[in-house]
Amino acid sequence: MNDFFLANNRSITIKVLGNDVEVKQLQMHNFDIWSPIASPIRDSLKQSDYSDLIGAGLVKDYGAHVFQLCSLCTNTEIETLLDLAESDPLEFSHLFQHVIDVNGAYFKEEIRPGLQTRKKKGVVEQTWFDSFQYLIAYGHRHDDILQMTYGAFVGYLKAAEKYQRNRGKFDSNIIRAAHHADKKGFTTFQDELSKH
């Protein structure tokens, strides 16, 4: 899914046994509800990409998680999903694959933002509040962050980190130029910065 799909909280509609089923993105406001459900599925998918065989294994090993996740991400009740999995396992597997694909920002990410436990002395543990504050420092509002999709949240975090790194490089270049330049050279450098 592309950046605009993530940022606009778009969904897709698929046909399942002739009925329209909307597959939605997971959002930050209920992260505490869906993350424990989705986490074991994500951890299992780290070993390989999704396939019908992998999906069948996930249903076998984490059935409750799979059905709860599909219910959270679609407009379909768990009972209907259970019936679908029993009557047409392949059709259910395709639905489940769409849930994984639409929420690929969570299921395929390599580095997770937010809570990271560090065991070394002197290193402060990062919390979700730190991630939220980081985005707030770059102009986002708390309520807006909660309404973001998980994919948009991660995208904005990466963009803010990139901006901070680039800003750090820029600032260090200015410090170096100021340190090594004579007064005339530094004045010329400042004039050049003012033009941009």
Rank of each mutant, 00 (worst) to 15 (best):
K119A: 00
G55W: 04
D101E: 15
C73Y: 05
R42F: 04
I41Q: 07
N103R: 07
L53I: 12
H98T: 00
A64T: 03
I100V: 01
A85G: 07
A85N: 13
T80F: 06
E77Y: 06
T74A: 02
L58K: 11
D83A: 03
E79G: 00
E109N: 07
V59K: 08
K108A: 11
E125N: 08
V66W: 11
G104H: 12
Q133Y: 08
Y50C: 00
P113Y: 13
P113I: 14
E125G: 03
K120M: 02
E125Y: 03
W34L: 15
L95F: 00
K46L: 12
L84H: 14
K119F: 15
W34T: 12
L82T: 04
G122F: 05
E77W: 04
S51K: 09
I37M: 13
L82D: 01
V59L: 11
F132G: 00
V66Q: 11
S44H: 09
Y62T: 04
T74F: 04
L72Y: 05
D49L: 08
V66D: 04
L81M: 01
P36A: 03
S51G: 01
Q116T: 15
P36S: 02
I100Q: 01
A56W: 13
V123C: 00
T80A: 09
C73V: 08
F92D: 09
F96N: 09
L69Y: 13
Q47D: 09
F132P: 05
I78R: 14
F107L: 06
F92S: 02
S39E: 14
I33V: 10
S71N: 12
E91Q: 15
L95D: 05
L69H: 10
G57I: 02
V102K: 10
D61E: 05
E79K: 10
D101N: 14
Y50G: 01
D61L: 04
K108I: 01
D43Q: 15
L45S: 00
P36R: 06
D61I: 02
S131F: 08
L72T: 04
D49M: 04
W34C: 14
K120S: 06
V102Q: 14
I37S: 06
I78N: 07
A105S: 14
S39G: 11
K60D: 05
I41G: 02
F132M: 07
I37C: 08
E77V: 03
L72G: 04
E109F: 06
S71Q: 15
I111P: 02
Y50T: 03
F129N: 13
S51M: 06
L45Y: 05
F132L: 14
K46A: 02
S131D: 06
E91I: 09
V102L: 10
V123R: 06
